[in-house]
Nucleic acid binder design. Sequence first.
DNA 1: CGACCGATCCTC
DNA 2: AGGATCGGTCGT
Length: 202
Amino acid sequence: MTGNEERLTRSFYERDPLMVTKELLGRYIVRETGRGKIVGKIVETEAYIGPDDKGSHTFNNKKTKRTRVQYQERGLAYVFSIYGKNFCFCIVVGKDHEPAAALIRAVEPITGIELMKKNRTIKTGKIKDLTNGPSKFCQAFNITAKDYGIDLCGDDSLYLTKGEPADETSISRSPRINIDYAEEWKDKKWRFYITGNKFVSK
DNA sequence: CGACCGATCCTC
DNA sequence: AGGATCGGTCGT
């Protein structure tokens, strides 16, 4: 495996949410399984920043069973279900205990491609389709509700490493996807991706 | 307790 | 372009 294998520490996540979300690009996310290791390079992220952001689940400091982890320690996993069968994976980020999350929208498969194929329901031969969307990535890495709230700085089965941080010059940004309800907040360019990387979602 | 709906995926 | 699908959320 290429890339720096040191873990990202909690202090990495305890900073400005937009900065952290951008600097997640190029980092590696690792899932240890009984059958081996699954590794992906993060190539697309989005920032959701309560309490002002109408696109965020924590808009207006909304506290529910689902969002409670966003008010806890930085570096925890915020996993939620969407459209019945699908999950999305975020990392709790930001200063103090202000609610904010960085959504992982796509990764580039690095290690364990056969395991990813096995985990995905769709059996396409194309590597590109394994992880190029937030819920496709969760499927490939077997991330489900059971992973809600786990500490990515301390857990042995799911964590992030320093990897190959993306150059500032290779990063693009755009409005976030599928938040038409967010009114004036939907146009904020809080989606970050590695320019030209073919594993970015469509 | 019931109604609504989504940080999406997949097939048509 | 449209259907699937179900837990979280909220109003009653």
